Simulated assay, not measured.
Amino acid sequence: MNRSRIAPVVWLVGPSVLFMALLFGWPLIVGIGTAFTGDGLGRMVADPYFWPAVRNTLLLIVVLIPLQFALAVGMALLLRANPRFGGLYFYVWAIPLAVSDLAAGLVWLAVLTDRGYLNSVLAGLGLSPVPWLAFDNPVSLFVAVLVAELWRATALVLVIVVAGLQGIPKDYEEAAAVFGASPWQRLRHVVLPLLRPSLQVALILRTILAFQTFAVAQALTGQNFPLLVGETYRWYTVLQNPNVAAALAVVVLLVSMLTSVVYLRTLRAQS
């Protein structure tokens, strides 16, 4: 390429590349350097909360992501059928998008606490209250965080799926129906393959955000249900150890990047 053509490209793209390198590259280098100094990795692995946090984070993602996508796709298909008051349904389902993580956690804390709304309903029915957030019941703690995250974050997937469905002409489904395809066959062989780019974006985005789940679990369970990002916060603010906090952040970064690469390669291979 002629130098006279390269120069304008450099002047146009160069400042953006430099800005992105300073904004993301330099903090990344500093964070990785901090993680490998002061025995941050060793203290992270030796921390009794580290492996439970890894287990809880992965378990939450494995259970949460499929449920969110099943609900989001189901709600989006219902809206695609143009039911009565469909617009109202969409706005109601999208309300959690306007609720912050901490606010969502506090809302569900008011529902699930010992004297919360749910136990008040049970008492009104003559039933004994249930300690939903008891520290010695990890199953109920997990279910509480799962339900709160499911309520809070499914709307994000729904918006992406609805946008993807709007780009799929209904002519394809009608043609498949003419040839005798059942509703399930039309969904599996027509709608979902055409929806794959939107599902791929939603899957990567939602998984990365799920790794960052913190405020909801913190509001509901405190330290009783540790998660990786919550441990990062604890080491940095409470224990005042940026080396271990940086090591935990690097773990979250690496796992998120690895998951994104697996998603991209798997979905590309299926396309």
Rank of each mutant, 00 (worst) to 15 (best):
M1T: 14
M1Q: 04
N2C: 00
N2M: 08
R3F: 10
W11G: 07
V13C: 12
V13R: 02
M20F: 15
A21H: 11
L22Q: 12
L22P: 13
L22F: 15
F24C: 00
P27K: 07
I29A: 14
I29K: 08
G31W: 02
I32C: 13
G33S: 12
T34V: 03
G38R: 02
G38D: 01
D39L: 00
G40R: 01
G42Y: 02
M44T: 08
A46V: 01
A46K: 09
D47W: 08
R55N: 10
T57A: 01
T57C: 04
L60I: 07
V63A: 15
V63Q: 09
I65Y: 06
M75Q: 13
L77K: 08
F85E: 11
F85D: 14
G86D: 07
Y89F: 14
W93I: 04
W93E: 03
A94H: 04
I95S: 08
I95C: 10
V99G: 11
V99H: 09
D101G: 15
W108P: 04
L109G: 03
L112Y: 14
L112P: 04
R115S: 05
Y117L: 15
L118H: 04
N119K: 00
S120Q: 04
A123L: 10
L125A: 04
L125P: 02
L125E: 00
L125Q: 04
G126K: 01
S128E: 13
S128M: 01
S128G: 10
S128A: 09
F135A: 11
S140T: 14
A144I: 03
A144K: 04
A144V: 11
V145F: 08
L146I: 05
V147N: 03
A148Q: 11
W151V: 05
R152Q: 15
A153V: 04
L156A: 08
V157Y: 06
L158N: 12
I160W: 10
V162S: 12
V162E: 11
L165D: 11
Q166A: 15
Q166Y: 02
I168S: 06
I168R: 11
D171F: 00
D171G: 00
A175T: 13
A177H: 01
A177V: 05
A177D: 08
G180T: 06
S182C: 07
S182N: 07
S182L: 02
P183F: 01
P183E: 09
P183V: 07
V191L: 12
L192T: 06
L195V: 11
S198Q: 14
L199Q: 05
V201A: 11
A202H: 02
L203T: 14
L203A: 12
I204E: 12
I204P: 05
L205A: 06
I208P: 04
A215N: 11
V216T: 05
A217M: 02
A219G: 00
L220N: 07
G222W: 06
Q223I: 12
Q223E: 15
N224M: 09
N224L: 02
F225G: 13
L228Y: 00
V229C: 09
G230L: 09
Y233K: 08
Y236M: 09
T237F: 14
Q240S: 13
A245W: 03
A245M: 05
A246Y: 04
V251G: 00
V252M: 05
L254R: 01
V255R: 02
V255W: 01
S256P: 12
M257N: 11
T259W: 00
S260R: 10
S260L: 01
V262P: 10
Q270D: 14
